[in-house]
């Protein structure tokens, strides 16, 4: 058992030592043919924390995220969500389980407005059958109004008011990243998976996004798991960090632990000459 969290913790205080981990990966191994993407990786994520997974290119970060979201099926190991084992996660059931994710290369619905992009994820299977939608019967109308109201809240939360009715395809990049985060949040997920939320952003956008992720965690009391390349962002944002290298977990702990870990420094020095500065700097 890891010691009780003493670093930053959750501002809402919903960390509990007795509750089962929000997510636990138990000895996950994943291979594609002869290529081992993940070897015996175990990972625990506490409720309400911001948990980062870092590592050099090809370390297996995206594979891990894809295992959690059911895109890949591991050869061995098990996934536990709030203590419940999931031998197989069906991507189509992901929202029902309470997992939402964003994608590295934006996966928005370009033909829909900002509001519709967000509202559509509220309860896509609710709101009555086609006929009651078509005739705007009370049930369908209520569901649509509820989705619109909640989407509107998120539009304001993410400062997207000026784009509300614009088609998403025409928005600047940083705004689209925010729409995707809002779409993930409207379903009130227990687990929020973020695949490189800062990819392709400038300094200001990264700063804003860091604030958004933190305040989204606080306001929606969700547990955040994120993959990110920008180490200064990761160090600043995370409660705990796991480090992968060649499909193995080589370190796991608070940002301070990871920053001074010899294996981590070696992994980054050995593979990539740009990142160690990030490790030692902030």
């Amino acid at each position: 058992m890891p010691p009780p969290d003493t670093t930053s913790g959750s501002p809402n205080g919903h960390l509990s030592a007795r509750a089962p981990a929000a997510l636990a990966l138990d000895h996950i191994s994943l291979a594609f043919g002869g290529v081992r993407a993940l070897t015996d990786v175990s990972l625990e994520v506490r409720t309400g924390e911001i948990r980062s997974i870092i590592g050099p290119n090809g370390a297996g970060k995206s594979s891990l995220l894809n295992v959690i979201s059911g895109v890949y099926q591991p050869q061995s190991g098990a996934v536990y969500i709030d203590g419940v084992p999931y031998p197989r996660i069906d991507p189509a059931r992901l929202a029902a389980i309470g997992i939402a994710r964003t994608f590295q290369n934006l996966a928005l619905f370009d033909g829909l407005s900002v509001l519709d992009n967000i509202a559509i994820a509220r309860s896509p299977r609710g709101g009555g059958d086609l006929l009651s939608q078509f005739l705007a019967l009370p049930e369908a109308r209520r569901a649509a109004r509820k989705a619109r109201e909640e989407a509107d809240d998120l539009v304001q939360f993410f400062g997207l008011e000026t784009y509300r009715h614009r088609r998403v395809g025409s928005l600047p990049y940083g705004a689209r990243k925010r729409v995707e985060l809002a779409r993930a949040l409207i379903a009130r997920p227990r687990l929020l998976l973020l695949d490189e939320p800062m990819a392709g952003m400038n300094h200001q956008d990264k700063h804003d996004m860091t604030q958004f992720i933190r305040s989204a965690r606080d306001r929606f009391s969700t547990t955040v798991i994120l993959i990110e390349h920008d180490l200064s962002v990761v160090m600043n944002l995370s409660d705990r960090i796991a480090v992968l290298d060649f499909g193995n977990k080589i370190a796991d702990g608070t940002p301070t632990d990871v920053r001074t870990n010899d294996a981590v420094i070696a992994a980054y020095l050995g593979v990539d000459h740009d990142h160690p500065q990030g490790v030692t700097q902030s």
């Binding site: 991507p91 189509a92 992901l94 929202a95 994608f103 996966a107 033909g111 994820a121 299977r125 779409r183």
Partner: peptide, 12 residues
């Protein structure tokens, strides 16, 4: 626009 994203957010 994006079948995978639609599936993952729960669109039938």
């Amino acid at each position: 626009d994006n079948e995978l994203a639609a599936r993952i957010i729960g669109v039938p």
